[in-house]
Design a protein around this nucleic acid. Structure first.
Lengths: 205, 205
DNA sequence: GTGGCAAGTGCCACCGAGTGGCACACAGAT
DNA sequence: ATCTGTGTGCCACTCGGTGGCACTTGCCAC
């Protein structure tokens, strides 16, 4: 339909965008996100500030640029699968697919996460993005059964729990340098949700 | 130890702070959070901008001022109870206490939520604050048993799930004008976590 | 090719949030 | 009455982000 890469205009645009992104991340690496001003990025990339904000809506979207597309991919995937599988099976399938995908991108993801961790604003934004995912999940599950308030509540609470375990799992994975198997961690977390959280021994005396 | 309200200085200060808060919320009500500039608040409250930022670290903390204290209260409560109860029982007790507290403050909470909903920045910040709660919960549960990585992961995933269901539950409660019994909703959500999420009938054909 | 059109860019002035610094005011102790 | 330290006002400044306008440059019709 669109996303044409053929005309010279489009190619130049994409190239310029990529160039800005590259220099920006180089600067974030050298200094930190907060300590890097938009102006310095523009200087380095030989672009005007005004133009920068035509490419990127935010300074923050230098970091989270691809997330919207990722969400779209995920929503599509989920809508596809929840048609034939029950919610948890659909999520398990998603975990396998996306877990494998992330497992193979460890280096890039770790570098990105280093940037995110360096700025409170980015951490906040990350959580806000989780909210979008949560809403998407809730809607997928809510539309599968009737639309009574109870079903709606059930879907939203489940969606909240899912994003909660996903975020904490991924954070754990990052902290351990992505050495664990993300798919395994994710599937375990989903089992907790489906079958209930097991009690730990009460080790205090 | 501290929090002295006796000297004239302190009284004046507290009064000034309260006055700013009052006028600010009045303005947020008239216009919206984003459409209200700090300067206009200062003008209305007869205070200088510089002084404003000595009272409030942020424009946003005009809205979220009490949350830090709430978190402290909650953490204290949780630390107290997880010493003698298992995690879920402690959470159930907390749900009863805090649910009752919130149920009795519906009006104030709804007004505040109206403000929060009017600004994406506030919604993001709200989620960031949830992150603080999540960390606090995870730490309380993690310190109860050994500190093996597995226990740690378990505690953090549970904490993520808890905040996920709490947030979605409270959001639902707000959307329905706080007409439901918050304690009941909260306890149901906790049951989901402890015993697993029930399957809904597959209503599609 | 040439000329016109529209997309893309640069520049400048501007806004709003937040900070640093300094001079002044004022409550409280002596 | 005076000294002292806290709190306040004011000013200038930084940084992210926007509006507006002039200008360049790729694209397309002729």
């Amino acid at each position: 339909m669109n996303s044409p890469q053929n005309t010279l205009r489009e190619r130049k645009k994409a190239q310029a965008r990529a160039h800005v992104l590259e220099t920006a991340h180089a600067l974030f690496h050298r200094k930190s996100f907060d300590a890097t001003t938009v102006e310095s990025i523009c200087r380095e990339a030989s672009i005007s500030k005004r133009t920068f904000f035509r490419y990127f809506s935010d300074k923050e979207s230098l970091v989270f640029g691809q997330r919207e597309e990722r969400l779209a991919t995920f929503v599509e995937f989920l809508a596809e699968h929840e048609r034939v599988e029950n919610p948890f099976d659909a999520l398990r399938t998603a975990t396998r697919v996306f877990g494998a995908r992330y497992n193979s991108k460890k280096k890039r993801l770790l570098a990105q996460q280093r940037v995110v961790l360096s700025s409170p604003a980015l951490l906040a934004r990350e959580r806000a993005i989780d909210g979008d995912w949560e809403r998407a999940i809730a809607q997928a599950f809510s539309s599968r059964s009737g639309h009574s308030p109870e079903d709606d509540l059930w879907a939203r609470v489940l969606a909240g729990a899912i994003m909660g375990v996903v975020r904490s799992t991924v954070t754990y994975w990052f902290e351990r340098k992505c050495e664990d198997d993300l798919t395994r961690l994710g599937l375990d977390a989903l089992d907790y949700l489906e079958r209930g959280f097991p009690q730990r021994a009460h080790a205090r005396e």
